[in-house]
Design a binder for these strands. Structure first.
Lengths: 196, 196
DNA sequence: GTCTATATCCAGATAGAC
DNA sequence: GTCTATCTGGATATAGAC
């Protein structure tokens, strides 16, 4: 991938983000050096600073863009008027599918939250809470309408997110179960969790 | 905590492990320096090497001892002959309680798995799988006896572990719910997950 | 058992040539 | 836009004095 001097702004910028995402997700933010990222892209370390002011910003931008995309994508598919069960099914299937396609993004947002410094921490925390609130609203609406029977809305929301995120730690393409199967299994488990 | 020169092997050894555990859990293995650990203990960085050959061993020993203790503690409380529901309840309550008391240990074992190098990785993976297998055995026994109705035993086991581990990310002493309440909520959710 | 001092290396980030 | 070269600081780990 080594590349000679020249102008490649259109490809270098995204390539840096791709490489950083992959390496951060695999080894952890603190364990990856700017030189490693640069080597992966095929440039020298100094060249990275044309695209990011520093390493922390690189992490933050990756996480921030991911969270914004996640929320935007969810707001595209959600249906506010439906029955609680349908809204919940939509959420669960959306969440699982999104994670299949953006495994590294989600993994990074989950694992490197504590690597954020200063205001970055609060900014991502707020976006995360906004996403969790989407689920929590569905659950409390269903609880209020009597469709769901939950021992505790907040804990159920957190447990559900944790359960769904668990897919991240073991799913690999070409494994025993197809994506549709996994989606179905998780929806079945979720249905049971919210009813007595 | 600064301490003058002298012999303190009995306290320094454990103090190093305590400090390393706390710092690794808070900031991540790669982000913590040997100097930080030493400062926390009240010695200089060089003194750490009387107690560990290197930083990686410090991490591995913490994780290894934790996993061994976890398995040993579980084998103390488990009852092989009981009904699947009782065995599952024992596991869920044990797991949650153990996590309350050893939050940092469990968090570290979970988050820093990827920081293990060489054979250390496989050794901890095996211990983790042995623990997961304990749950999986309960689930498949219950499935075989007809007590449980599971869409997929393996996925249910992983989802259950992920759900329970989720407590780690939000539980704090003195929060809205007491430990007993949390235990009860998680057992309620678990019961539902394994029955139609 | 701990300290001071240091060897060795690599980190993040910048300056100026091309 | 990228390179080479470099500054500066801090990392792990070791050696030898006390």
């Amino acid at each position: 991938m080594a590349r000679k001097a020249g102008s490649h702004a259109e490809i270098t910028g995204p390539a840096i983000r791709d490489a950083a995402l992959r390496l951060f997700a695999r080894s952890g933010f603190a364990a990856v050096s700017m030189r490693e990222i640069a080597a992966e892209v095929g440039v020298r370390a100094g060249a990275l600073y044309l695209y990011t002011p520093d390493k922390q910003s690189l992490l933050f931008d990756l996480m921030h863009d991911h969270m914004q995309s996640l929320l935007a994508a969810w707001r595209e598919v959600r249906v506010d008027g439906g029955a609680p069960f349908e809204r919940l099914e939509t959420f669960v299937r959306f969440h699982i599918r999104y994670h299949f396609d953006r495994n590294d993004h989600v993994f990074l947002a989950y694992m490197e939250f504590r690597s954020l410094t200063g205001d970055n921490h609060g900014a991502i925390r707020d976006l995360r809470r906004a996403y969790e609130a989407e689920l929590e609203t569905i659950l409390s609406d269903g609880q209020a309408s009597g469709d769901f029977d939950l021992p505790d809305v907040r804990v159920t929301a957190l447990a559900l997110i944790a359960k769904l995120n668990g897919v991240l730690t073991w799913y690999r393409d070409g494994g025993r179960l197809a994506r549709d199967d996994i989606e179905r299994v998780y929806w079945t488990m979720t249905q049971r969790m919210v009813t007595a």
